[in-house]
Amino acid sequence: MTDRPTTCGSACTCAPTSNVDPIDEGRRGFLGSLGAASAMTVLAPGVTLLAFGGEATAAPGASAAKRWGLLIDVSKCTEGCSDCVSACSSEHGWKTTGHPATDPQWIRKVKLRDPKSGATRSAPVMCQHCAEPPCADVCPTGASFKRADGIVLVDRHRCIGCRYCMMACPYKARSFVHEALEDQKPHAPRGMGTVEGCTLCVHRVDKGEVPACVQACAQTGGAILFGDIADPNSEISKVIATYATIQIRGDLGVDPGVRYRNL
């Protein structure tokens, strides 16, 4: 408190912009953010260079030209293997709380059995990263959203924990954190009172890496293929174009980004 005059003085001389006004800063920042994103970039050299915006222009961020997706070859997925699940768990730090009914479940292995033939299949099910995500439709705060590149996420800064999205999701892909947490992974924030789910390892994808489940599966079964399904020349698109693949509950019209082959 005692340093107020000094701080104000130095800030005013080094950066004569509205950004340094100690009283109106929050409101001005808010009003500024209501403007178009391009306006923010125009202002960036003068105003937001002080913030992260200046160098953020160098990082391209999510591109609307891409749509990340997965292709899971069920014939290569063995029933006893859960490497994708354990990889996800250790990557993001979620684990059992001792209450199986409410445990977090970002990805799970599902066993399917045809009652007539008795044939069984085992496949991982996670957030299907729908093009028309019902979770985002029902979210009252805008916390559930789809990124430009098709990854569906929960913005926990806005999540109020109402769990509408959990009800709306046809794939039961989301979980609610019931208990206070400590020592989360720095790249995977998660906390009590918010909803969470598969992020398609967005922190890895943004660095040009593949999701943890895909990396783990490549070392064992090689059943999961990750790529840009909007690019016709990507490996995943070529496989989808060549072989019959399905979306789970494709009849719902939500257009999942995760596809299954040999299911």
Binding site: E25, G26, G29, S33, A37, T48, L50, A51, F52, G53, E55, A56, A58, A59, P60, G61, A62, F145, R147, A148, D149, L153, D155, H157, V202, H203, D206, K207
Partner: peptide, 17 residues
């Protein structure tokens, strides 16, 4: 303010610095 500005860019736009 820096954190709030950065968090929206990162979570929603995918811009990571």
């Amino acid at each position: 303010s820096l954190l709030r500005h950065g968090r929206d860019l990162t979570v929603r736009e995918g811009e990571r610095v």
